[in-house]
Amino acid sequence: MSTMMKIENLHAKIGDKQILKGIDLKMLKGKVHAIMGPNGAGKSTLSKAIVGHPDVEVTEGKIIYKGKDITNWEPEERALEGIFMAFQHPVEIPGVNNAYFLRTALNAKRKHLGLPPLNAAEFLRLLKEKIKELGMREEMIHRSLNEGFSGGEKKLNEILQMEILEPDFVILDEIDSGLDIDALKKVSEAINKMRTPDRTFMIITHYRKILDYIEPDFVHVLKNGKVLKTGGIEIVDALEKEGYKIFEEA
């Protein structure tokens, strides 16, 4: 089975605080990897390190993606190579039209792949189709990016972007936070549809609930900036019962 991403001995800090203290992690093509762990374990920092967030400084170790060392790549280079993060709190950008933004992003990607850009009409056709599938309101595409969206709408908008940009490696950063059960179902369904033998998902979550809808192939437990335990869904059951401490001696 081929490796999509390999993280080797990753140390990283935010400001003066050392948060990742030697993460080793292998994520496989076509698989769903769930990352769990208590608050402060380094889950979000890990995802930020993968997408190249400027707050995170990698002090040691490597991130190998599709065989390439991307540790020091610019965020947009990683994005164009297929890394996509659905943000926990998508930012609002006033005045930037949702559709316009997404077309720019898509055409940047198409250019990267050597494809001709889509014109406005072609793009709109694609967009409308996806919107219908997701059951979003059409007027949302003409609004400013994430501005005035409800929590659920923002998350759906992230999924919409994912569908349009067709990434190879998807990070879902607490996609379940702030969603009611219906919205969670809807989002999960959309994600399950995106599961293919070529696409890898990394799901960061606190809760078991979402893993009932999106079944993970692997579960990794993080604590204190290290991977404490790797296994299958059975880990989640153990966690439910005993809490994180059961892995401490492992």
Partner: peptide, 13 residues
């Protein structure tokens, strides 16, 4: 935040 969001979607700085 805004800048990073757009860059994460593959748009040049």
């Amino acid at each position: 935040e805004q800048l990073f969001y757009l860059r994460q979607r593959g748009i040049k700085e």
